[in-house]
Simulated scan of single mutants.
Amino acid sequence: MSRVKLKTLLDRSIKNMGDVQQGVKDKILLLIRKAYEEDINVQISSGYRSDAEQQKLYNQGRNSPGNIVTRAKPGQSVHNYGLAVDYFLTTWDGAKATWTVNNDWRRVAEIGKSLGFSWGGDWTGFTDYPHLELTNGLSWRDLNRGRRPSNEFLNKGVTRKGHSGYKTYLLQQKLKSLGYKLKVDGFFGSGTDKVVRQFQRVHALEVDGFYGPSTQAKLEHELEGVAVAENEKEEENKMEENKDQPSKWAKEDWEEAKENGYFDGSRPQDTITREEAAVVVNRLRHNFREIIKRNEGTIENLTKAIQKLNL
């Protein structure tokens, strides 16, 4: 059984999250990536929830069939403000959902908490094990009054120090691929800030530590150069590998030339040097002289016969 692709889990989750806050989405994508690296398949089942959707969910087990799954009326759920998601685990191939709250489930919650989320499994009374919310301590009542977590906490604005999430993770990966030394963990701390400023300084950009448009453009340009260089190196390696094997159309003649001592059998597709050409010509000369020596009588008789024909 092959494992479900990370991209599949990410794409499914993006679709199911809907219109959550950008910071929530960014951090959740990193969570899925980190869990995947630990052999845990996690997927988001829901994210933003409209008032109408919240009312329908609240009615379940009360005015409509099913079990009661929430105590929150419209406006009373953090989901209504785009600051919460629900998750589940999947089988190895990603074909089925699993809802058992085991060590893997709790590990996902720990990753979420490291990114600033609160976990419903820590609640007393009405525990909600699939629930993760990014409120920085604010309640639904605070949100209903118009309060919100800080812009930095929600990764709003240009990616910079204090942010954490998938964007930072990808930035770190790109910088590392250019040879910069930094930890690739999705947290934009002092180390990442230092490297971003170093990159900006090297390329005569404004040194502010912000991963803004000009820094993004320059980084992508440098990565393209690396990609081209890597492709050229790969082609060179392929050519070097091919030089060790003769082409199909020349294989038979090449083997015969080796047997006759004209070449040592190495670099069949490489360019011949003047020294090698001299050796081949000299070996041919010696071989012709040896053939003539062995067949002097035959050649002399053949010469006389030709002379008679010409009379």
Rank of each mutant, 00 (worst) to 15 (best):
V4M: 02
K7G: 08
R12F: 00
I14H: 08
D19V: 02
K27R: 14
L29D: 09
L30G: 01
L30A: 01
K34T: 04
D39N: 14
D39A: 11
N41R: 02
V42S: 06
S46Y: 01
R49D: 15
S50K: 06
E53A: 09
K56G: 13
L57I: 10
N59Y: 03
Q60P: 01
N63L: 14
N67Y: 03
V69S: 10
Q76R: 11
Q76H: 05
V78C: 12
H79V: 12
V85T: 05
T91Q: 13
W92M: 12
K96W: 04
K96G: 10
G112Q: 03
K113D: 05
S114F: 00
S118C: 02
W119A: 07
W123V: 13
T124Q: 15
G125P: 14
Y129M: 12
P130G: 10
W140H: 13
D142T: 09
R145K: 14
G146N: 14
L154H: 08
T159L: 04
Y166W: 11
Y169K: 06
L182S: 04
V184I: 15
F188T: 04
G191R: 04
V202A: 13
L205Y: 02
Y211H: 03
T215N: 07
L219C: 05
H221C: 09
V226G: 07
A227I: 06
E230G: 07
K233A: 15
E235S: 12
E235G: 10
N237P: 03
K238Y: 11
M239E: 15
N242R: 13
N242G: 06
D244T: 12
Q245D: 15
P246R: 04
E252Q: 11
D253S: 14
D264L: 07
I272A: 13
A277W: 07
V281L: 15
N282Q: 12
N287R: 06
I291C: 01
I292M: 00
I292Q: 00
R294G: 00
E300R: 00
